[in-house]
Design a protein around this nucleic acid. Structure first.
Length: 431
RNA sequence: UCCGCGAUAGCUCAAUGGUGGAGCAUUCGGCUGUUAACCGAAGGGUUGCAAGUUCGAGUCUUGCUCGCGGAGCCA
């Protein structure tokens, strides 16, 4: 027999069906029991009258504790008073497994307690909604690139050295070859892929051993990084804005119910349409000065600065052409002003900060060698990367989008720890 | 690493230096339409750890541990 789930019930009104799931909540009133069943696809109120079931079944309803698993059979009926629009009149019920006292009650809990019970917290309705939106965003990311002729080009997670040289890396012994490091970016490998396949993207976990302790940071997070041969900075920004529009509009099209559960004000999301505003770093600094911020030209933008800048716009804003000194070694200099890098950061609205960082890459061998020396990076570790400039170097560009920051922004959350099933942070690696 | 805040029942929080309470959860009882249901009752405590001040410390002082928020760094 084909199993039916709660999300399909609108097609089964008037039928008798059997459902499997867990008890989300229960209310009782004399000879009446309201059992809220959840099965991962939705919630259903199962109404049990004492007179319409056997005494044994009615007794079961009192034994069902929160999160007990059970099988329930009954008739599906349209019901305006029910949240999902349908209800079940229970005819039969079997307990699959009785749950002990469940730690997460319908009342409020603190962050520490919930994170300690993350393996159970993911059952809660808001967490389920967030994880479904995360999945939809991941699908949008894959669809977007797949539909545009990109090839998925998986980068290694164990790497011999720093990709960018700046951040701290997680280190692990690697047989007789000394230490290996968990990747902080697949980008350099993606560049090799772009020279082979033209348009590629990497999508996988990324690791930063920085002692960051903010609502925007995880030590393990997912990043998607497209890299395109023959693209310049403008092409890169065109791609980024089309990409962001596609992601947000996909979620709006398919995940309205989940956004409602999260009480997300979708007007901020509906505004995410091309073109996205593009301003230079110089213009961004001007905005800061106009708002009375004492900002020294040449510094990188801080979190508070990003919020002030993004608050000027109703949609994500692209800030491009940063001082090259605050950016990575592989970024190409602006031919019209060598003090600037052909970099672009995309700042999400509502103070969510940087969700994309990208650039046109330095394609000249000699200049790249110079940069590696300036940054005191070990040249031999980058010899394979330099080969990309020795054998048919071309202009190319790409960017990285942080998945969890994007989910956090689209869901309107106040911390990225809820955007991934099991967050890894500086003071937490359990459960 | 630095700055700020915090730790009291299973959970969320109260308690003027003077007998540690409430709501939820649990158990029992009541209710035929509940929406974090409601009403009644019961059980539940080494106040994060260690020392100090005091006749007396959950409360004041010092140290430690753990957590939360922010900065820097970044996606």
């Amino acid at each position: 027999m084909k199993k039916i789930c709660i999300s399909e019930l609108k097609n089964h009104v008037g039928e008798s069906v059997t459902l499997y799931g867990w008890l989300y909540n229960k209310r009782s009133s004399g000879k009446l029991r309201f059992l809220i069943l959840r099965d991962g696809t939705g919630y259903l109120q199962c109404v049990t009258f004492k007179n319409s079931v056997s005494p044994e079944v009615f007794e079961f309803t009192d034994k069902l504790t929160q999160e007990s698993s059970f099988e329930v059979t009954g008739t599906i009926r349209e019901e305006a008073r029910a949240t999902g629009g349908v209800e079940m009149d229970v005819a039969d019920l079997k307990i699959i497994s009785h749950a002990g006292e469940y730690p997460i009650t319908p009342k409020e809990h603190g962050v520490e307690f919930l994170m300690d019970h993350r393996h159970l917290w993911v059952r809660s309705s808001k967490q389920v909604a967030i994880l479904k939106i995360r999945h939809r965003i991941v699908k949008a990311i894959r669809d977007f690139f797949d539909e545009r002729g990109f090839t998925l080009f998986d980068a290694p997670i164990l790497t011999p050295a720093a990709c960018e040289g700046t951040s701290t890396l997680f280190e692990t012994p690697y047989f007789d070859l000394g230490n290996a490091y968990l990747t902080q970016s697949g980008q350099l490998y993606a560049e090799a892929g772009a020279m082979a396949l033209g348009k590629v993207y990497t999508f996988g976990p990324t690791f930063r051993a920085e002692k960051s302790k903010t609502r925007r940071h995880l030590t393990e997070f997912w990043m998607v990084e497209p890299e395109v041969a023959f693209n310049d900075l403008n092409d890169n920004m065109d791609l980024a804005e089309e990409f962001l529009e596609y992601i947000v509009q996909s979620v709006l099209a398919d995940r309205q119910e989940e956004l409602k559960i999260l009480e997300r004000d979708v007007k901020f999301l509906e505004a995410v349409k091309r073109p996205l505003p593009r301003i230079t770093y110089d213009a961004a600094v001007e905005i800061l000065h106009k708002n009375g911020v004492e900002f020294e030209y040449g510094n990188d933008l801080g979190a508070a600065d990003e919020t002030i800048i993004s608050n000027q716009f109703d949609r994500p804003v692209m800030v491009h052409r940063y001082p090259s000194e605050v950016k990575a070694f592989y970024m190409k200099r602006d031919p019209e002003n060598p003090k600037l890098a052909l970099a672009v950061d995309v700042l999400a609205p509502e103070g969510y900060g940087e969700i994309i960082g990208g650039s046109q890459r330095e394609d000249n061998l000699d200049l790249l060698l110079e940069r590696i020396k300036e940054h005191n990076l070990p040249e031999e570790a980058f010899s394979w990367y330099l080969d990309l400039r020795r054998y048919g170097s071309v202009p190319h560009a790409g960017f990285g989008l942080g998945l969890e920051r994007t989910v956090s922004w689209i869901c309107g959350l106040d911390h990225v720890r809820e955007t991934i099933p099991f967050a890894r942070m500086i003071y937490r690696n359990t459960p």
